[in-house]
Design a protein around this nucleic acid. Sequence first.
DNA 1: AATTTTTATACCTTATAGGGTATAATTTTA
DNA 2: TAAAATTATACCCTATAAGGTATAAAAATT
Lengths: 72, 72
Amino acid sequence: MESPLASFVKNKRKLLNLTQPDLASKAGVGLRFIRELEQGKTTLRLDKVNQVLQLFGHEIAPVLNKKNNADV
Amino acid sequence: MESPLASFVKNKRKLLNLTQPDLASKAGVGLRFIRELEQGKTTLRLDKVNQVLQLFGHEIAPVLNKKNNADV
DNA sequence: AATTTTTATACCTTATAGGGTATAATTTTA
DNA sequence: TAAAATTATACCCTATAAGGTATAAAAATT
């Protein structure tokens, strides 16, 4: 499964020439977490994801959905 | 603790005149989850948060951080 | 193409997220 | 201001996220 979040992290990491272990230790999360994140696992914890995104000057936030159905 | 995500959900819910139980059942998550979400708990699961945001036509995504430090 | 580096997969363990429920507190409405 | 409705807090339980480690596979380097 390819998720936007997964691609985002993988790309940013590559841009900085970091390995997964590099990123893991910089972010203070486990190596396995980075792998699951980059592979699009959906059941990740918000705070851990943010720990990683922070390294890239980003954070998780609600944004408008493409396939919209804002019709509760 | 007041988080942007928490406020977002609370506001959207209010706009639609839903109670927390309403939102919980519409989103297919537990009532407790909605409460923790609206109270700014940070260790929530990404997929559950998305289940809720979807009702508002939104989803979680990485956005630029205010307090930036994109200097790995 | 052989070696090294990086990434992926699989297993075990521990801490806890999330569901449920019951009760208390707060807010709303009559 | 009582009564009703909504939200908050606290408990128990189960499933699993996340860490670690070991090995396999794949990519990159020489």
